[in-house]
Design a protein around this nucleic acid. Structure first.
Lengths: 140, 140
DNA sequence: CCCATTACTTTCCTATAGGTACCTACTATA
DNA sequence: TATAGTAGGTACCTATAGGAAAGTAATGGG
């Protein structure tokens, strides 16, 4: 999600007040941090399967490239959501696990999983209905 | 997020089992539907401020273009999360509101807002710490 | 006539996350 | 020697969501 600064705040009377980004959508920064193609699955895997090595994550998240896995893990480490532990061994041994802060996302993930289980079918159905409608009359 | 089909499922014994996308991250489809640059703020505004016209949303979400607003609203309508109501008037009057299905996202949004309020500062702090560490020693 | 309102539409461009393909370093083992 | 393991690094390319800028249609009012 974008992160540009938006100057607050006024428009003509009677029309909606244009809001600064925090009020426009206070959850935008979290969404930006946690939800993307690979960040979410990485966090999910660490939550689900616990502490593991780079190559374990790589295998588990089958189609991810080492490049992207590295990038995402670095960012997650920087955000404080993941802890990286280096072991001076050969072959190299580096382990990743969810941090305290990262673990605080667990209720959120649970809510998402719940919503997914209960409602995704309805989204699919809505899409089918919408597409059928589009094939009939045009938009009004 | 990507949605490519991944063939399940086996690797050598003792190593993590590569999973199909649903098990790899069951929340990925929801994330794909709900969380993006403009989808999330649109849903948030409709939840927060209720039924409103295109131009009201546009003004509220200050920097969004009519093109993108239209696209996102179309997709949200298609997903069944938003209801569009056309009024045969001049000037044109079209209103958008959250659907039943869309309203079921409210607990999720509340959890996100809560996490945001409580934890974003820690993310900022973690980033500062990480960056300071990077400026000191290199990575080990 | 011009300007205003509303809800879009169209064309072209940009930014960036991710993808592709190759590579490095350091052992350990056959 | 080659191959294996691990954790990455580098250069270039691609796909796509979003951005920029122009436009349309149908009134209504000054």
């Amino acid at each position: 999600m974008g992160r540009e600064a938006i100057v607050s705040s006024t428009t003509a009377p009677g029309s909606p007040v244009a809001l600064d980004p925090e009020q426009a959508c206070p959850i935008a920064p979290v969404v930006d941090i946690v939800f993307s193609r690979w960040t979410t699955p990485i966090l999910w895997a660490l939550h689900e399967y616990g502490r593991q090595r780079f190559v374990e994550l790589e295998r588990r998240l089958t189609t991810i490239t080492p490049k992207v896995l590295t990038q995402r893990l670095r960012q997650l480490e920087r955000d404080g959501l993941v802890v990286r532990t280096y072991h001076p061994e050969v072959p190299p041994r580096v382990e990743y696990e969810i941090s305290e802060l990262g673990r605080s996302l667990a209720p959120l993930f649970a809510t998402l999983a719940e919503w997914s289980a209960v409602n995704l079918d309805q989204v699919d159905q809505a899409r089918r209905d919408y597409d059928a409608r589009q094939r009939g009359t045009g938009r009004r």
